[in-house]
């Protein structure tokens, strides 16, 4: 928590993730302000699940998120571009097998 946010009455910010349905990965929904984790959960429910958007919620203090920086974009993600062998399209399948699907 930063100095200024402890000095004011403003509640800290939390990032909200929700699971749209059983077995699906969690997605980022947005954020809420809340004084603590339990209230963050309740606020997230009231804000981001008003229309049955999900079945489970995670809340994380926003200042606990570590994100890659824009300068990392090239270094982090470009190298994967030429690794075609990681993608299923790289492999050919006999015609007969394709038909059976």
């Amino acid at each position: 928590m930063t100095e200024s946010s402890t000095n004011t009455t403003e509640w800290p910010l939390w990032e909200v993730f929700y699971q749209p349905s059983d077995g699906k990965p969690f997605e980022h929904a947005g954020s809420v302000h809340a004084p603590d984790a339990e209230m963050a959960l309740l606020n997230a429910r009231d804000t981001y699940a008003r229309r049955n958007e999900g079945i489970a919620i995670w809340v994380v203090p926003s200042d606990q998120i570590t994100a890659s920086s824009p300068e990392d974009r090239g270094a982090f993600f470009d190298p994967a571009n030429d690794k075609a062998y990681r993608h299923p399209q790289f492999y050919s399948v006999p015609r007969a097998v394709k038909k059976r699907k």
């Binding site: 009455t9 509640w11 004084p35 603590d36 209230m39």
Partner: peptide, 9 residues
Amino acid sequence: VRKAAKEYA
């Protein structure tokens, strides 16, 4: 209200 919740936390 905001103050109370923060103090509780």
